[in-house]
Amino acid sequence: MDALKSAGRALIRSPSLAKQSWGGGGRHRKLPENWTDTRETLLEGMLFSLKYLGMTLVEQPKGEELSAAAIKRIVATAKASGKKLQKVTLKVSPRGIILTDNLTNQLIENVSIYRISYCTADKMHDKVFAYIAQSQHNQSLECHAFLCTKRKMAQAVTLTVAQAFKVAFEFWQVSKEEKEKRDKASQEGGDVLGARQDCTPPLKSLVATGNLLDLEETAKAPLSTVSANTTNMDEVPRPQALSGSSVVWELDDGLDEAFSRLAQSRTNPQVLDTGLTAQDMHYAQCLSPVDWDKPDSSGTEQDDLFSF
Rank of each mutant, 00 (worst) to 15 (best):
S112A: 08
F306W: 05
L107C: 05
E170N: 08
D293R: 03
Q240S: 12
L43R: 15
S246Y: 13
A7E: 14
S112E: 04
S307C: 11
P269G: 04
L42Y: 15
Q20I: 10
V290G: 04
H137R: 15
H28Y: 12
K294Y: 09
A278E: 09
K220G: 03
S205Y: 07
A145D: 00
P94A: 12
D252P: 10
F171M: 08
T158M: 05
S93V: 09
R95Q: 01
L50Q: 01
V157S: 02
A130H: 00
A168F: 04
G25W: 15
A258R: 06
I108Q: 07
D253S: 05
S117P: 05
V88K: 00
L213A: 07
L42G: 07
R29S: 15
L147T: 01
G254Q: 07
E301D: 15
F146T: 01
K91C: 04
L203Q: 07
Q60R: 14
Y118F: 08
N268T: 08
S112L: 04
V58T: 10
Y52A: 11
T277G: 09
M153F: 11
P61R: 08
F129G: 00
N34M: 14
G8N: 12
A228T: 10
Q155R: 14
D198V: 05
V58K: 01
F259E: 03
S112Q: 12
M124I: 11
G63S: 13
I97G: 00
A278L: 10
V111I: 08
K152S: 06
C148W: 00
A18R: 15
G210S: 11
L305V: 06
V92K: 00
I71W: 00
S288N: 04
K87R: 09
G45P: 07
L223Y: 02
Q86V: 09
T231F: 04
V226W: 04
L47F: 09
K72E: 04
G190S: 05
D198E: 07
T104Q: 12
A284P: 11
L287G: 13
T230H: 03
E64S: 12
F259C: 02
F171R: 05
S135D: 14
A162V: 01
W35K: 14
Q20P: 08
P61M: 12
F48G: 01
D126M: 00
V167E: 15
P32T: 15
L276V: 15
K204P: 11
A221S: 09
R73A: 12
G275R: 02
S307P: 07
L85T: 00
A278R: 09
P61F: 06
A145F: 00
L66K: 02
S227G: 13
S21M: 06
K204Q: 06
P32A: 15
V88S: 08
V88F: 01
Q240H: 13
H125S: 00
S246V: 13
P237L: 07
H28P: 15
W292H: 09
Q279M: 06
S307E: 07
L85D: 01
E33Y: 15
E109C: 07
Q163G: 14
A130S: 13
E64L: 09
T231G: 07
D280W: 02
I132F: 14
K79W: 05
K62M: 04
R196H: 07
E65M: 15
A78R: 09
D37W: 09
P222S: 15
S243T: 13
I132Y: 02
I132D: 01
T200I: 09
E178D: 11
A133T: 09
L159K: 10
C148D: 00
R95H: 04
P202H: 11
A164E: 15
S260W: 09
P269T: 03
E40T: 13
T231N: 06
E170I: 06
L53H: 00
P239E: 07
L31N: 07
S205D: 09
I116R: 00
N105W: 03
D126R: 00
L215N: 15
F129C: 08
K62A: 12
L47K: 01
R151K: 05
Q279W: 14
D101S: 14
V75C: 00
Y52P: 08
K152T: 14
K176T: 10
S16W: 12
S186W: 03
D126W: 00
W292V: 02
L206S: 11
G63N: 14
F171P: 04
V271N: 12
V128S: 00
G26P: 10
V271S: 09
A10P: 14
S112P: 01
D253Y: 04
P269S: 02
A133M: 01
M124Q: 00
A156Q: 15
N268I: 01
S265P: 03
E257G: 08
Q240D: 05
A156E: 08
K84T: 14
Q197G: 03
W22C: 13
C119N: 01
S186F: 01
K51Q: 03
H125N: 00
R95Y: 04
V271C: 10
P201S: 04
Q187D: 02
T38M: 11
K79Y: 10
K123W: 11
L251D: 06
V58F: 01
C148V: 01
A68L: 15
L17F: 11
A133Y: 02
L107A: 02
Q134P: 07
F165Y: 07
N34Q: 11
I132K: 01
T104M: 09
W35S: 08
C286T: 02
M281P: 07
T120H: 04
Y131M: 11
A258M: 07
G45I: 08
N110G: 15
W22M: 06
I108T: 14
Y283H: 11
G244M: 05
S14M: 01
L242V: 14
G244C: 07
P32I: 14
L57Q: 13
E44N: 11
K5M: 11
A241Y: 09
Q86C: 10
L193Y: 02
K51N: 02
V167D: 13
M124A: 01
G210P: 12
L147N: 03
S112F: 01
S224H: 09
L276I: 03
V88Y: 15
Y131R: 00
L223F: 04
I113G: 03
Q60W: 04
Y283A: 15
N34R: 12
